[in-house]
Write a protein that binds this DNA or RNA. Structure first.
Lengths: 233, 233
DNA sequence: CCGATGTTACGGTGACGGCCGAAGCGTAGC
DNA sequence: GCTACGCTTCGGCCGTCACCGTAACATCGG
């Protein structure tokens, strides 16, 4: 079967430690240069270049030329979802072997980070918990919906959660995404992306240098407390 | 980062052609013996044995001893979803290069097959289309819901689509799954699994020997025509 | 035009891993 | 017990691929 070979090819591309590191670094949805990715994967630029051409040839990345820089980005949300799903399975195995190894440098990542286009980490899970507790969304392991209460909340915040809305406004769709550090679902999908964008735009959170981690601003601390009852550290 | 190594390990496990073939064969959710899997991957039993121990050690498979047979099965729905998501990315690349290569022996698979625990192929997509057209479900690329009309339909059929139902019966949750052969979403999640189980239990479809393909019975042909307006060949 | 920077191409080296043949172990049936 | 069968382990062969050094190629700034 031809699909079988293609499957193995894609998985092999993701299977190399160096390439995995680069894909991991691109999971925040931004575009990075070959040198930045080389640093992220701890390899030389020329080795990274080879990997990147393979990833691009395999359709996992798209490349954007801009002067003497070449920006690399995940090719599609489908690729991001694939990486997420692999991380979930990997997280299962890790936690099964070791109780939990909280790296000191991972603290920021575990506290709050972006996951392609939405929020993850303790902050992401807390937000989802708050929305569920206040009956603004409902989540199962497979799917999620926004309730009428949720619709009014997001309207009030001015969050445009859908380009084309389904038939009923009370039935906005969203998607759960298992958090690899918290091991509980956070909010993904179109609504998760819109919420994350709103947090960034409003200055509630800020990206930390070149990582996926984000920090909560003073303004954000107040907003999360007032709107969602979340105390951020 | 430790998670990075674990990620690469999982992806590498899925990346070998032989292992990919075995995982592919296990995608229907059943448990197969080492010999059957060796045949599916076209390798000798001793080679298969090595692969299977690695897959089990990596947590992708669980093994069940039964006499002198050892049955291998996907470890969890999360693993199945991971494989699905890789197939989706792989399908994108395949179709991008070649117009579409319909293997003669794949005909049955493309017509109707199981995808871990739900229906896929032309039949699966047609079912989803019918449910959408009749406003019994709504699907986006991320999520889906069952409408009130859908609830009454599944109640009438006696399909128990959820163990614990969410607050409102009119808002049952389901999940879309991009079909790799049809390239359009079909119905997955708890509802998809329940619907597939009902089709099997009612004798509407039957598994074809040891493959993922299913055939529509005469009884099923009538049921699909009457209930969903689908003409099966 | 010239150096600096970012990126790609090539060749050689080393190691990891898949593959099979042969042999060892456990279970089932006679 | 003995034989048949399924499965696993071991040993050695071989191909593949990641890696880096060196070098060539583009682009930007001066």
């Amino acid at each position: 079967m031809a699909t079988n070979a293609a499957f193995a090819e894609i998985a092999t591309l993701a299977g190399d430690p160096a390439r995995a590191g680069m894909l991991h670094a691109l999971m925040d949805g931004r575009a990075l240069t070959a040198s930045e990715l080389a640093g992220a994967a701890s390899i030389t630029p020329q080795t990274a270049s080879g990997h990147l051409s393979k990833l691009a040839a395999g359709g996992l990345l798209v490349v954007e030329k801009q002067g003497r820089h070449r920006y690399h980005r995940l090719a599609s949300p489908a690729v991001a979802r694939m990486l997420e799903s692999i991380m979930q399975v990997a997280a299962d195995q890790v936690s099964r072997r070791k109780p939990v190894v909280t790296g000191p440098r991972d603290r920021a990542l575990r506290a709050a980070r972006t996951c392609y286009d939405h929020l993850a980490g303790h902050l992401g899970v807390s937000l989802a918990d708050s929305l569920i507790a206040n009956k603004q969304i409902e989540l199962t392991s497979d799917a999620g919906i926004v309730t009428a209460r949720g619709v009014s909340l997001f309207d009030k915040l001015g969050i445009d959660y859908a380009t084309r809305k389904p038939s009923s406004r009370a039935r906005m769709l969203c998607r759960p995404c298992l958090d690899w550090s918290e091991r509980r679902p956070h909010l993904a999908g179109a609504l998760g992306a819109a919420l994350c964008a709103h947090c960034l735009k409003s200055g509630w959170i800020r990206r930390i240098d070149g990582t996926r981690a984000v920090s909560v601003t003073t303004k954000g601390r107040g907003a999360f407390r007032d709107l969602f009852g979340i105390e951020t550290v």
